[in-house]
């Protein structure tokens, strides 16, 4: 299993530069918002955390279509499926998700405080945004894995995955953003929405891979 994690991590870093694509997309999205809403610093600071979350959400969906498709094209997926007596298929999917998250989404989390500066988010908000993204984005990857597995046989599944996955990501977005606001605006709580966010991630870590494994089994 560690071998699979390392292989996918290596592929994610070496091939195609998935991490860089995501960061550039994230950067573009955050950079054009001030042009669209105008240079009102108070307004930017107020919507900043939400924009960061939307940007990270969309950017992390970018490379998802390749999660299983690349393995399907070169025949690796058949062998991963056949190994399900040795390695529980859901666990294989979980490991692939973690590798994808480390290679493609973790850099987004790391870049988020810097991009938050563009939006005039105060320091506490920057920290909170990074922390909530760290806790919440794995859930998006796990949900996305189920979408990627459903769309694995489709030639251009990228858009399909986004349509399937985005509605399911709404709770993650809601609690992620409200926790970030909780850290900035005084009466709002931080801990409660943050804990719900962590719970969502843990829940999706189980449901997502199991659903993805089921979809992959019946993909033919």
């Amino acid at each position: 299993m560690l071998a699979l994690y390392l292989r996918d991590l290596r592929l994610g870093i070496r091939a195609g530069g998935g991490a860089l694509t995501g960061i550039v997309f994230f950067l573009t999205l955050v950079a054009i918002v001030p042009f669209a809403v105008g240079p009102d610093l108070n307004l930017l600071a107020r919507i900043g955390p939400a924009i960061l979350w939307i940007g990270a959400l969309l950017a992390s969906l970018l490379g998802l279509d390749r999660l299983f498709q690349a393995d399907r094209e070169d025949g690796s997926l058949d062998i991963l499926l056949m190994s399900s007596d040795r390695h529980l298929l859901a666990l294989t999917v979980l490991v692939k998700c973690l590798a994808h998250w480390t290679a493609s989404v973790l850099p987004l989390v790391a870049a988020s405080p810097l991009l938050g500066l563009f939006m005039n988010v105060e320091p506490a908000g920057l920290g909170a945004a990074a922390l909530t993204l760290l806790a919440g984005t794995p859930a998006i990857t796990f949900i996305g894995a189920a979408g990627a597995a459903v769309a694995v046989a489709l030639p251009r599944g990228g858009l399909m995955i986004s349509i399937l996955v985005l509605p399911l990501c709404i709770p993650v977005l809601i609690f992620g953003v409200s926790a970030t606001y909780g850290a900035v605006a005084d009466p709002d709580p931080f801990l409660q929405p943050f804990l719900v966010l962590c719970a969502l991630t843990l829940f999706m870590a189980v449901v997502g891979p199991v659903a993805a494994a089921l979809a992959l089994r019946n993909a033919e």
Partner: peptide, 10 residues
């Protein structure tokens, strides 16, 4: 199978 199950980047 038809595919070689190897990754080009490795």
């Amino acid at each position: 199978g038809t595919g070689n199950a190897m990754k080009s980047a490795l």
